[in-house]
Computed example of a mutant assay.
Amino acid sequence: MKTYLYLLFFFISFLGFSQETTTWIKTEGTIQKIDKKRRGRTYATVTFSTQEGEEASAYIELFGLPVIGNFKSVGDVIDIHYDKNNIAIAKSNSGKFISQYGMIILIVLGVIFSAKKIIDVRKLQQS
Rank of each mutant, 00 (worst) to 15 (best):
S13G: 10
I12F: 12
T50L: 02
S18R: 12
F48A: 01
K37W: 06
S114L: 13
L106M: 15
W24T: 06
N70H: 03
I89R: 04
V74E: 00
S114A: 13
Y59A: 00
Y43V: 10
G102W: 11
S18Y: 08
L124C: 08
L15V: 11
W24K: 03
G95C: 06
I34H: 00
F9T: 14
V111D: 09
S57H: 07
E54I: 02
G110M: 06
K116Q: 10
T21D: 07
G40L: 06
I87H: 03
G53S: 02
I68K: 02
A56K: 10
S49D: 10
F11E: 07
S18L: 10
L124F: 11
W24R: 03
N86G: 01
L109C: 15
G16P: 13
L8A: 12
G16H: 06
L8R: 03
F11V: 15
Q126L: 09
F113H: 03
K33L: 05
E52Y: 04
E52H: 06
A90G: 05
F10W: 09
S49E: 12
K96S: 12
K117A: 11
I87C: 00
K72C: 01
P66H: 03
R38T: 08
T50R: 04
S49F: 02
D35R: 01
G69M: 01
Y59M: 05
F113P: 07
K123I: 13
F14V: 12
T23P: 05
A90Q: 06
Y6F: 14
F71A: 07
G53L: 05
V74T: 00
L65R: 08
K123N: 14
S114G: 14
H81Q: 12
Y4W: 11
G64T: 01
I112F: 08
F9Q: 05
Y43W: 13
F63V: 08
I119P: 14
H81K: 11
K2F: 10
K26I: 11
V46Y: 08
V46H: 08
A44R: 04
I105R: 07
I119S: 09
P66K: 01
S13A: 15
T22S: 07
A115P: 09
S13Q: 09
I78W: 01
T47V: 15
G75N: 03
I118F: 10
L15E: 05
N93Y: 09
Y43F: 14
Y4P: 10
V111T: 12
F17T: 14
S13N: 13
L7I: 10
N86A: 01
K116M: 07
I104Q: 13
G110N: 09
Q51E: 09
F113K: 07
G16C: 13
R39F: 11
T45Y: 09
Q51G: 09
E54A: 10
Q125I: 15
Q126C: 00
Q51I: 06
F71L: 04
